[in-house]
Amino acid sequence: MVPISWYIALSAILFMIGVGGVLLRRNIIIVLMSIELMLNSVNINFVAFSYFLQDLGGQIFSVFIITVTAAEVAIALGILIALVRTRRVLNVDEIDTLKG
C-alpha cells in the first residue's frame, strides 16, 4: 500500500509549483490556473487523510473546496472580462488602480 507521506509529499510539490506560478508568472490567466493547482493539491491532502483515518469529513471538505473553487473561478473570470473590456491589460503588474 502507498504510505500517506507520499501523498503529502506530492501535494506539497504541486502546491509549491502553484505558488511558483503565482509568484513568477505575470499573465493573469496563468496566475488563476496556478491558484487552481494549489487548491487541488490541498484536496489531495484532505482525501489522503480521509482515506487513512477512515473518516468521511475530509471528502466532504473536498467537495466544499471544489464548490468554492467553482464560485471563485466564475467571479474571477467575470472580473477579468470586465477588466480587459475597460483597461485592455492582462499583466498583473499593470493592474494597480487601487494603489493610490
Binding site: 500500500m1 504510505p3 500517506i4 507521506s5 503529502i8 509529499a9 506539497a12 482515506y51 487513512f52
Partner: peptide, 11 residues
C-alpha cells in the same frame, strides 16, 4: 513534509 513522523504510516 520529509521530516514529518508520518513516514511509514499506511493502511
Amino acid at each position: 513534509v520529509l521530516l514529518s513522523p508520518l513516514k511509514g504510516f499506511a493502511v
